[in-house]
Amino acid sequence: MGKTKLDPSQWVDRYADYLYNYTISKVSDQTLAEDLVQETFLAGLKSASGFKGDASERTWLTAILKRKIIDHYRRANSGKGKVEVKINYTDDDQEGDWLEERAADKHRDNIEDQLQNEELGIAIERCVSQLPEKQARIFRMKTIEGMETEDICKELQITPSNLWVIIHRARTTLMNCLEKNWF
């Protein structure tokens, strides 16, 4: 297999949404996620000479992003380090209740669902980023941004039947890509 070459001029179109969704799942803040993705690209440019070409561009950029996210949390926690414990059970007659209430975590199912959805989001984005560029772009415009067919056709100067052929190809590839783990 040939070595991968970096093409920074295509990074935003190819990987910005993938990296953005990945970051959102880790930091839950849109502005921060955008900034971290930007920092990732700029750090990628800076260390481009060290890229050996063994991994794909996306894998390499994701590795940089992961370090950025860890750095963010390190910075955010650097002034802390103390555990905050809040217990509201002060009355003697409530004493017996708290263990049971803490043990039955009502939010656990929601959290598990949320984690699964985040994982799913990353899996879909990974598959989308592997599509040919035009297919990925049109799929995103139609499915994620929810744009009208007419508007996409105008913007990209394609016919509606052309659009539906591209959507068909994109969706078929995505189904195959996701089939192993999610279908």
Partner: peptide, 24 residues
């Protein structure tokens, strides 16, 4: 169903444009 469950988002196009300019 999976796409809607995943609640995928796109980065703000203006932000993308700015990053592209910075990279260029």
């Amino acid at each position: 169903k999976l796409c809607s469950k995943a609640k995928l988002q796109c980065m703000d196009p203006e932000k993308k444009k700015k990053i592209k300019e910075k990279i260029a």
